[in-house]
C-alpha cells in the first residue's frame, strides 16, 4: 500500500469535496438558517462550482501540490464570500506554503500542512477551540493526524482517525454557545444547533479520508 500522496490524490480529494458540498448544501443552509443567515450552503456550493471549473480547465498550470492548493485558495477567496471564503482560503494557502511544491507528500508532511492550515484559519479568524466554529472540527483532526503520524500509523488508518476526530468535534459544537461569527449574536440560543462551518469542514476531512489514503486515486473520469 502506498504511503505517499500524489498530486492526483489531491485532485481527487478536491473533486470529492466539491461533490460532497453539493450533496449537503441543503443541510448547510438549514443549519445556518437556525443560527446564522442561511447563506453558508449557497456560498460553499458557488465556490465549489467554480473550483470544479478551474480544475477542469486544461489551461490550468498546476504541476505540483503547492500550486494546486494555491489555486484552490484563490478560487475560494474570490467566490465564496462571507467568513468562509477567507477562512477556507487561509487553510489552503497555508497548506500550500507548507508543502512548497513537490508532486508527492508523506503522512508526516500532510500533518504539517493541515497544522499550518489550522494556524492560517486561526490567525485570520481568531477562533479558539469551543468557539463553535470550523476550528472545532479541524483542530481535533489535526491532532489525531499528528498523533498517528508520530506513531508511524499507515496513511489510511491515520486519515480515518482524523475523520473520526473531526466528526466528534463537529457533533461537539451542538452543545456549545458561539463566541465567533454570526451565531455569537444568539448567546445561549445557539446551544442545541450544530455549527454549519464545522459541518462543511468535517466534509473536507471526510473526503480526505476517502481519497488521500486510496491505493489508486479515484479516476477523474468517474467523478465527472
Amino acid at each position: 500500500m502506498s504511503q505517499e500522496i500524489s498530486l492526483a490524490h489531491f485532485r481527487a480529494w478536491l473533486l470529492a469535496y466539491a461533490e460532497h458540498i453539493e450533496a449537503i448544501e441543503a443541510q448547510l443552509t438549514d443549519l445556518d438558517a437556525a443560527i446564522g443567515d442561511a447563506d453558508h450552503g449557497a456560498n460553499m456550493r458557488r465556490g465549489m462550482e467554480r473550483l470544479r471549473a478551474r480544475l477542469a480547465d486544461p489551461g490550468l498550470q498546476c504541476d505540483d501540490i503547492g500550486a494546486l492548493l494555491r489555486t484552490v485558495a484563490m478560487t475560494l477567496v474570490s467566490t465564496v464570500g462571507g467568513a468562509a471564503g477567507p477562512l477556507y482560503g487561509a487553510f489552503f494557502l497555508r497548506a500550500a506554503q507548507e508543502c512548497q511544491g513537490g508532486s508527492v507528500v508523506t503522512l508526516v508532511q500532510l500533518a504539517r500542512m493541515f497544522r499550518a492550515g489550522l494556524q492560517g484559519i486561526q490567525q485570520r479568524g481568531k477562533a479558539q477551540l469551543n468557539d463553535k466554529t470550523l476550528v472545532d472540527a479541524l483542530e481535533p483532526a489535526v491532532v489525531a493526524l499528528e498523533k498517528a503520524a508520530a506513531e508511524g500509523a499507515p496513511l489510511a488508518v491515520a486519515l480515518e482517525a482524523a475523520r473520526v476526530a473531526a466528526e466528534a468535534g463537529m457533533r461537539h459544537t451542538i452543545g456549545l454557545q458561539a463566541n465567533r461569527g454570526r451565531a455569537s449574536y444568539l448567546g445561549p440560543r445557539a446551544i442545541g444547533h450544530q455549527d454549519p462551518g464545522a459541518t462543511s469542514l468535517y466534509g473536507l476531512i471526510r473526503t480526505a479520508a476517502e481519497t488521500l489514503g486510496a491505493a489508486q486515486p479515484a479516476s477523474l473520469a468517474s467523478r465527472r
Binding site: 443567515d37 447563506d39 449557497a42 464570500g81 462571507g82 467568513a83 471564503g85
Partner: peptide, 11 residues
C-alpha cells in the same frame, strides 16, 4: 455588492 447577505470578496 456581494451575493445575497454575503460580504463581497477581496478582489
Amino acid at each position: 455588492p456581494g451575493a445575497i447577505f454575503t460580504s463581497p470578496t477581496p478582489d
